[in-house]
Amino acid sequence: MGTKFARFKRNEEVFLGVVEKNQIYKVQADPDSFRDYLEAAVLEAKNFHDETKLEGMQLCDVELLSPIPTPSQIICQGVNYSVHRQETGMDEQKPPFNMIFSKAPSSICGPNDAIIRPQNVKLLDYEIELGLVIRKKITQDTVVTEDNFIDYVAGLVLTNDISARDVQLTQLQWLKGKSYRTFCPVGPYFYLIEQEDVVKISNLQLQLKVNGEIRQFANTDQLLYKPIETLNELAQIMDLQSGDLVLTGTPGGVAMQLAADEMNCMTSLVAQFGEKVEIIERQHSLGNYLRDGDILEATIVSADGSIDLGKQRNIVKNLQSISV
């Protein structure tokens, strides 16, 4: 079974720690260098036993940060669950191609940080996703298999692909609409996987609540393009570096709901901008988009409970309230 790690702040200093139950034990490593972080994590996972532990701290006494230092890239999969494809006006079947896009690394925030809604964003949406943390460089010559998966993927994290739908859809600007600062909560834990965990990645339960109401609930066995397939495809397009994040897609239950004709209009390069604005205006009446003060809670856990990526709890605030 893998080991859970966290980056945390105490007395204005940032540390790396191994997590067990409600305790966190400080590890000697540079928490801002993923290479040092990973080397220390691997060593600590092998040597961490009850009889060798130093005195731990209560998790509630530290500030948990994103468990991964800012990566060079965040690569994302779009509409990778059938139900999510249906609710966005697409064919529910596995498409002939994998939809790939990116988020700015500066969008990352901690698992308990506020999500800041810019003043121009009215349709703020949520997307719980399983994140893969790359262990070592993936290039055109890389072939990822189940047997060597842990050579290339170090571990798993819980992520939320927050999206400004009014920017993403009317402007056809996925990068812009998904890259505002705080639009990618990560953590609280980095789960360092072992070989025995690889099969469990296809049986993880994702759940996201807004103000206590379950909005998203699904299992990673529903992924259309599986992680191994996606990593091999990405290898033929681009290099991935150690510490990069790959987000595997969100299940159904997001706030956005589009009919097929509406999605066709939104993705058209020749449709009038005014037509797209009218569709966006109709989205306001749906009622599920995030509002200031809303609280999001997200979890990812394996069916047997052996993999638990922790719980995110983020409140939505607007930029004006932060600046005053």
Rank of each mutant, 00 (worst) to 15 (best):
M1R: 11
F5K: 15
F5R: 14
F5T: 15
F5A: 15
A6C: 09
K9H: 03
R10A: 10
L16V: 10
V18K: 11
V19D: 14
I24W: 07
V27N: 11
V27I: 15
A29D: 14
D30W: 08
P31W: 08
D32M: 14
F34D: 01
E39D: 13
A41S: 09
K46R: 13
H49S: 14
E51R: 12
K53N: 15
K53H: 08
G56Y: 03
G56R: 03
G56A: 08
M57K: 11
L59T: 04
C60A: 10
E63Y: 07
S66N: 08
P71R: 04
Q77E: 12
G78W: 03
V83R: 09
G89I: 06
M90P: 03
D91R: 04
D91N: 07
D91H: 05
E92G: 12
P96W: 01
N98D: 06
K103N: 08
P105M: 12
S106Q: 13
S106T: 14
S107R: 11
C109Y: 14
C109V: 15
D113N: 02
D113M: 01
I116M: 06
R117H: 08
R117Q: 12
K122S: 15
K122E: 15
K122P: 11
G131F: 02
V133W: 04
K137R: 09
I138L: 09
T142N: 13
I150G: 13
D151M: 07
D151W: 08
Y152I: 03
L156V: 07
T159G: 05
N160F: 01
A164D: 12
L169C: 10
W174P: 13
L175W: 11
K178E: 00
T182S: 03
P188F: 08
Y189S: 11
F190Q: 12
L192P: 11
L192W: 05
I193H: 14
Q195E: 13
Q195N: 10
D197Q: 10
K209T: 00
N211G: 13
G212W: 05
I214A: 10
I214E: 04
Q216R: 09
F217S: 07
D221E: 08
K226V: 13
I228N: 10
I228D: 05
E229L: 15
N232L: 04
A235K: 10
I237H: 10
M238A: 09
D239P: 02
G243E: 06
L245R: 01
T250H: 02
G252I: 03
A255N: 07
M256Y: 00
M256D: 00
L258G: 07
A259P: 07
D261C: 02
M263D: 04
N264M: 02
N264L: 01
V270Y: 02
A271K: 01
F273V: 10
G274R: 06
E278C: 01
I279S: 02
I279L: 01
E281Q: 01
R282Y: 06
R282S: 08
N288W: 04
Y289T: 03
Y289F: 11
L290E: 15
R291I: 12
R291G: 15
D294V: 00
E297M: 10
N318H: 12
V324W: 14
V324A: 15
